[in-house]
């Protein structure tokens, strides 16, 4: 049975889609049959990050409304075996999604895949609630700033009350904290919240820490999930995140200010650019 993981945040622009693309790709690279679904109906972006925007014919809304079969709408990733993308519709809005429709799509996918990654839209309205409703696990993407932390807190409240697991009294959704755009220099300067402050307020397990990195923007614009860039710090940090999601114990890195010494440059953890 597939594991359903929602990538969510409440706040927009914190890196949900980047993270969903990187995590889905990482899981597939490890041999898991993985599908990533864009729930951001009307603001479709995942296809761009995955670099498959020219191959979109049918989308999630078409499948839910019976205008296309699931097989027709799924796009096979060109770079990574075992990875499929189910894009969102750009011309419809989130009202086109129904609970029963989403349930059926997920049930059909669950038979074929090991992991189903749901890329949630921002906000706490219908689209976001549908994306998280059926989840088994949640990756809560948070930037080191107060508004993002507060919105993540709000989403954590929804995960524990407005999900199928909560409403049916099953085991709660397993919640993971993923901190993105972390810049240790700016944390030291007091411009950014530090790791411990965020963990203290949100009080959930940390699954990954992605440093602020030029590699992310470059990857987005090229349509190649940043995890493929295994020379970059962000790519390596996402690989660590995927390992932890799969239950491995990997030490945290990139949380400290990078030393500029020769040894650090030669043997240090990852290239900043």
């Amino acid at each position: 049975m597939a594991k359903i993981i929602v990538v969510t945040s409440g706040k927009g622009g914190v890196g949900k889609t980047t993270s969903a693309a990187a995590i889905a790709t990482g899981l597939a690279l490890r041999g898991n049959k993985t599908v990533v679904i864009d729930f951001d109906v009307g603001l479709r972006n995942l296809d761009l990050i995955m670099g498959c925007e020219r191959r979109v014919v049918y989308d999630l809304v078409n499948v839910i409304q019976g205008e296309a079969g699931l097989k027709q709408a799924l796009i096979r990733d060109k770079r990574t075996e075992n990875l499929h993308i189910l894009p969102a519709s750009q011309t419809r809005d989130k009202e086109a999604l129904t609970l029963e429709g989403v349930e059926k799509v997920l049930a059909d996918l669950a038979g074929e895949f090991d992991y189903i990654i749901c890329d949630s839209p921002a906000g706490i309205e219908r689209g976001a609630q549908l994306a998280l409703y059926f989840a088994d696990e949640a990756v809560v993407v948070t930037n080191p700033e107060v508004s993002s932390v507060r919105d993540s807190d709000r989403i954590l409240g929804l995960l524990s009350s407005k999900s199928r697991r909560a409403e049916q009294g099953q085991d709660p959704i397993k919640e993971h904290l993923l901190i993105t755009r972390y810049n240790p220099n700016r944390v030291d300067d007091g411009d950014m919240l530090n790791l411990e402050d965020i963990r203290e307020i949100l009080a959930i397990d940390l699954v990954g820490l992605i440093p602020e990195s030029e590699a992310v923007l470059r990857a987005s614009n090229q349509g190649v999930p940043v995890i493929h860039d295994d020379k970059s710090d962000a790519g390596q940090a996402y690989a660590d995140t995927v390992s932890r999601l799969m239950g491995e114990d990997v030490p945290l890195r990139f949380q400290l200010v990078q030393k500029k010494g020769l040894i650090a440059r030669m043997f240090g953890g990852g290239n900043r650019r």
């Binding site: 507060r150 807190d153 709000r154 954590l156 409240g157 929804l158 524990s160």
Partner: peptide, 26 residues
């Protein structure tokens, strides 16, 4: 447990004891 942003916990008839944090916005 934590009372999170946007959540409301009330005891309309008596005392309320929260064992955990009450976060901003809760």
């Amino acid at each position: 447990g934590t009372v999170r942003s946007g959540q409301q916990v009330s005891a309309p008839e008596g005392d309320l004891v929260v064992i955990g944090a009450v976060n901003p916005g809760a």
